[in-house]
Computed example of a mutant assay.
Amino acid sequence: MRFLCLFALLLLSSVAGAQTREPVDEFADFDAFLSGFRKETGTPALSAVIVRDGQIAWEGYYGWSDDEGEVPTSADTTYKIASTTKPIAATAIIAEALAGGLSLALPMSSDDGFAETCEWLRASPIPFGSGGEDRHGNAIPAMDCAKPLTLAQMLDMRANGDAFVYNPIAYARIDRAISGAGGRDLRAIVRDRVAEPAGMRDTALGWRDPEGGDALRFLAPPFHVIDGRPVKQVLPDDDFRAAAGIIASPRQMAAFDIAFDTGVLVPPTMIRELVEADISPLGDYRRGWWLEDWEGQRLMWHSGWNEQKGSALYLKVPDKHLTLIVLANTEALWWGNSLVKAEVVQSPIARRFLEEFAR
């Protein structure tokens, strides 16, 4: 009897211990990886969010968001998100078209300066203008200035011909083409069609956004790392275009991501078209997204690079209902992307994330 009582006490003690033990943190290794990445690259501020099944599953904030090292990076810290503006702007433009506010068939020539810009780019040494090769030897065709180009084709990065070429300068003319055809101001389109319905608070659509909230107040200033030391840079003064300009935190980008996936912004069938589209081994670019296949899974992503000032990574694994958003106030997240090949797996952060959570 005494033995049975002792056994029962031991069993109860074991169960109680199991119940109070801390659960395994599945994000701990990734958290440590990002913390180490920030230190190794000399980046002052880095923020990251993982969205899973329609909600924020994890978030991490590293370093400081001022030049004195006195303001810790937090959920409020904002960044210039550079080219990760493109999928947000493209979604708003498509939503505006679905509502009858513009036509995706409108010609880019509605922008009076587009032809001149095209000819300038074609004669320039810029690879996506005059053509050439990327670092892998993949051919980059020159811009085809004789080709009639529509807004829909520009959203797919077809300014250089039938195959996609990442051409951010041509993409930046989109708002001029829309206004030239009698459409609304792009800032109003993005505010009405995306930012408000997605609940993107304290998000500035460029420096001159009168409804930017606290986005500018919480902005992490840009730095360039020289010999391992971050050197503060002058803030870029470019305003909002379809190509870049949004100032936001990862949480606000996550709000966009959740609204996008749940059909609040555009019909879910349009997202499935991107997931199921046939793409070449080089990948593709459609409606503001790079498309790439990895281990049998479709990836939708965009990177952002503001030279010597900041960088961004926005990566979706649609069939896993999984998204990673990372922002930094140095160019540490940029990996020298090809202009004609989708290769987000070349990013060490993207690769780590995919291997850890998407397999």
Rank of each mutant, 00 (worst) to 15 (best):
L299M: 08
W289V: 05
G263L: 00
H302T: 06
N329F: 09
S311Q: 06
L265P: 01
N306K: 02
E292S: 12
L313Y: 11
G288Q: 05
W290Y: 12
D293G: 12
A328Y: 08
K309Y: 02
Q297P: 04
W305N: 14
T330I: 09
D261A: 09
G288S: 05
W290F: 15
T330C: 08
G288P: 04
H321A: 12
A312D: 03
L327C: 05
T262R: 15
T323E: 10
G310K: 05
P268S: 02
K316D: 11
R298N: 05
F260G: 00
D293I: 00
F260T: 00
K320S: 14
F260S: 00
D293E: 15
T330Y: 12
Y314Q: 07
A259D: 02
I271C: 00
A259M: 04
P318C: 08
L327H: 11
A328I: 03
S311L: 03
L322V: 11
Q297D: 12
K320V: 03
P268A: 00
G304A: 04
P281G: 03
I279N: 07
Q308E: 15
I258K: 09
V317A: 05
T262G: 04
V266W: 02
L327G: 05
R287M: 12
L299E: 08
T330P: 08
H321F: 02
F260A: 00
P318Q: 09
